[in-house]
Design a protein around this nucleic acid. Structure first.
Length: 728
DNA sequence: CTAGGGTTAG
């Protein structure tokens, strides 16, 4: 561009300057390229030399150029020198300031104009709307003496952009009453308003007006109608409108492409994408976003590369999707390359982009880098904060996550859910409830995600009372028929030992997925209903197309082991890889060892352990040992005990396991010996913890350090109670 | 003055 300009400049300096400035301005709208700014200033010097800088049109362009480059000193200077203002020049400046978000400056310019036309009014009114300053906009709108289609439409579309859909429809009605005919732009805005309202009949009456006014074949209007139909779930209608269109443009094709995504048919969407006659940046961005959102990160990345190869310039909207895809792939290096590029073109501080980078860095374990990105964001929104909170919790840095969480100026339910899920993931169940209670107290509405986490915490603690309480809350929020919530309820009841309620919830679920079945089959097996568990497993195989997963199969093996169905269990075990493509893991082996040991097939069990393709598993050894004690095999027991001791040497868990085994066999002397040995070696069992909930306050009690603040009083009362009881 | 695309929890 630079050399082309030099040539042009030699022929006609004024005209070429305009071309140059126009190009620079439009480029600078999106990016603030340092080299363009340098070129612009150099040109300015040139123009001064040639005496052309004070000519009205050029001077205005120069002011706008500096305005966009955010060089306020130069702008002020030029404004002082410049006094050839007419309405057009003034309007240009107002628009440029609006574009930059300098609304107060635009208003000042507007107020000091000696004379204004309809463009001046519309520029200011729509400027305020664009910044969400609706009240000020309306103040000027009501005083506008030049009401025409454009000013009405500006106000209507501004309302729609600010989410004031109902108000925009009211304005539309007023416009019709005042006798001004809407044009195609008005209709597209109004259709969008009805789509946002989700009101089908409103949309249809607008459609009637469109037909009456003769705009039904307008491309923009039809496009908005296609989108309206899609939003209202009227897929057939969308297709019909699309099919009847005389002319279709990129927007139409992109909209219909999205229709297939909406229907869950990504492949068909891709086919449309490949075959559409025209594509632009938005189309590419849309397809990339769809891949990224639906978990096809590799496809998203591949498409992004093709987009670059074919010479398209990715715009701001494209980056969040591609960064998110890279985050899913944990592709740190590729992400950093993008970060470099994005910084170079000066858009790295945009919230959408920063939020994606925060996520990327955190998923790659780089929370410090993420924090750096976070600190630089100019206008942090909730998502940005949430990304930082989730990033810390993802890396187990719960204290930092909580710190950021507490600093948030505004929280939404994602924020709360993130914090809750973080504590759950890090097994701090007490905190899970603490945060949940705070969430309720803050007035935030829990959703299915919240309840799934909380129920999972209940299941981990086997807290039936809390679980029942939550079940009631879930009904109140109407979430009882959700798959995730239903599954979590099934699991909670099963893990808390209330298998009847578990079954009830499971049977009433209108939709069940793989995880639902797993929870129920596992729940039955672990609660001693082994036959029922196996029957349910067979029902699942018979009535659904679900493929059994690792967890279901270990539940099945567990059930077989508890039913004494050794041969059936062996059959399942042996067919795992062949029938379901699942390699047995250590849990499966442990189940099998347990099964063989229980039925007295001890040497087979011992052989199986020897053939295990994993690191030695304490659970398998202890299953064998307990088999030895029921079936009185001293020889294998000796060998097994020795192995267990070896294992115990390595970690405290081994000793705990050992002492538990001795305890279950009633060998109390050995239990105390083991515990003493642990003390000697400085090993300690990780502490137990319990708590009670009183008036929304959780009181914690630990088995090791960190005593309750009032433990002396509590023990005092306990002693008192004890003596009272003895006295009776 | 308008239509299609963007980030976070589970």
């Amino acid at each position: 561009m630079k050399s082309a300009f030099t040539t042009l400049f030699a022929i006609n300096p004024r005209k070429s300057f305009n071309v140059y400035i126009e190009t620079s301005c439009s480029l600078l709208k999106n990016f603030s390229k340092q080299d363009l700014i340098t070129h612009g200033s150099a040109l300015h010097g040139h123009l001064i030399k040639m005496g052309a800088s004070s000519e009205r049109y050029i001077a205005i362009k120069l002011i706008i150029f500096y305005l966009i480059s955010r060089k306020s000193k130069e702008v002020d200077q030029l404004m002082k020198e410049f006094n050839g203002f007419n309405i057009v020049a003034h309007n240009c400046l107002i628009s440029a300031n609006v574009e930059q978000g300098n609304l107060d400056e635009a208003r000042r310019l507007f107020d000091e104009m000696p004379e204004r036309n309809e463009v001046s009014w519309t520029a200011l009114i729509s400027g305020f709307l664009r910044c969400g300053r609706v009240k000020e906009s309306m103040w000027y709108f009501e005083r506008n003496p030049f009401h025409n289609v454009v000013s009405w439409t500006a106000a209507i579309s501004g309302f729609v952009q600010n989410g004031l859909n109902f108000e925009s429809m009211k304005l539309f009605q007023k416009m019709l009453e005042s006798g001004i005919m809407p044009n195609d732009v008005t209709f597209t805005s109004v259709v969008r308003a009805s789509a946002n309202q989700g009101d089908f009949w409103l949309g249809m009456s607008v459609l009637g007006l469109i037909v009456k006014a003769g705009f039904e074949h307008n491309v923009s209007v039809s496009n908005s109608l296609v989108t309206l139909s899609l939003r209202l779930g009227e897929i057939d209608l969308a297709q019909r409108i699309f099919d009847r269109m005389e002319k279709r443009d990129v927007v139409s094709w992109t909209a219909i492409m999205d229709m297939y995504v909406e229907m869950g048919d990504l492949r068909e969407a891709r086919r449309i994408f490949d075959e559409m006659p025209e594509r632009n940046e938005v189309t590419w961005s849309a397809m990339i976003a769809r891949y990224s959102q639906s978990g096809n990160a590799e496809e998203a990345v591949e498409l992004f590369h093709r987009m670059l190869q074919e010479g398209y310039t990715p715009n701001i909207s494209c980056f969040p999707s591609i960064i998110s895809a890279l985050a899913n792939l944990k592709a740190l290096q590729a992400g950093m390359n993008i970060h470099g590029h994005v910084s170079k073109i000066g858009i790295e501080k945009y919230v959408f982009i920063s939020s994606s980078f925060i996520d990327l860095y955190c998923r790659c374990g780089k929370t410090e880098d993420a924090q750096l990105v976070f600190d630089l964001v100019l206008k942090k929104n909730v998502v940005c904060w949430n990304s930082m909170v989730s990033g810390y919790s993802l890396n187990g840095q719960l204290e930092k996550a909580k710190k950021v969480f507490d600093l948030m100026p505004k929280k939404d339910n994602v924020s709360w859910n993130t914090m809750i899920a973080g504590y759950l993931e890090n097994e701090q169940c007490d905190k899970v409830f603490e945060v949940f209670n705070q969430m309720l107290l803050s007035g935030e509405t829990p959703n299915k995600s919240t309840f799934s986490s909380i129920l999972c915490a209940c299941a981990n603690m086997a807290s039936l009372e809390k679980g029942r309480n939550l079940h009631g809350k879930i009904f109140k929020f109407g979430l009882q028929y959700d798959v995730f919530v239903g599954t979590a309820l099934t699991d909670m009841y099963a893990k808390s030992g209330d298998i009847e309620s578990s079954k009830k919830v499971f049977n009433r679920m209108p939709e069940k997925n793989e995880i639902s079945w797993t929870a129920m089959i596992q729940g039955l097996a672990e609660n001693g209903f082994a036959e029922e568990s196996l029957v349910l497993f067979e029902e699942m195989e018979r009535t659904t197309s679900l493929i059994p997963n690792e967890l279901i199969l270990s539940a099945v093996l567990f059930a077989c082991s508890h039913c004494g169905l050794v041969d059936k269990g062996l059959w399942y075990f042996n067919s795992m890889e062949k029938a379901h493509g699942i390699k047995p893991n250590s849990r499966h082996y442990t189940c099998l060892v347990d099964m063989l040991s229980r039925s007295g097939r001890l040497s087979e069990a011992e052989q199986l352990i020897a053939s295990m393709p994993f690191e030695l598993d304490g659970n398998a050894w202890s299953a064998l040992l307990s088999g030895c004690s029921t079936h009185m095999d001293e020889r294998i027991a000796e060998r097994t005990a020795k192995k267990l001791w070896e294992l115990a040497e390595k970690k405290s868990g081994g000793y705990v396991l050992l002492s538990n085994i001795y305890a279950s066999a009633g060998r109390w002397v050995d239990v105390s010996n083991t515990r003493n040995l642990m003390k000697e070696k400085g090993l300690r069992k990780s502490g137990g913890c319990s708590w009670v909930e009183l008036r929304n306050q959780i009181h914690l009690f630990y088995s090791h350090d960190g005593k309750h603040s009032e433990s002396a009083e509590i023990y005092g009362v306990l002693e008192l109670l004890k003596s009272e009881m003895l006295a009776v």
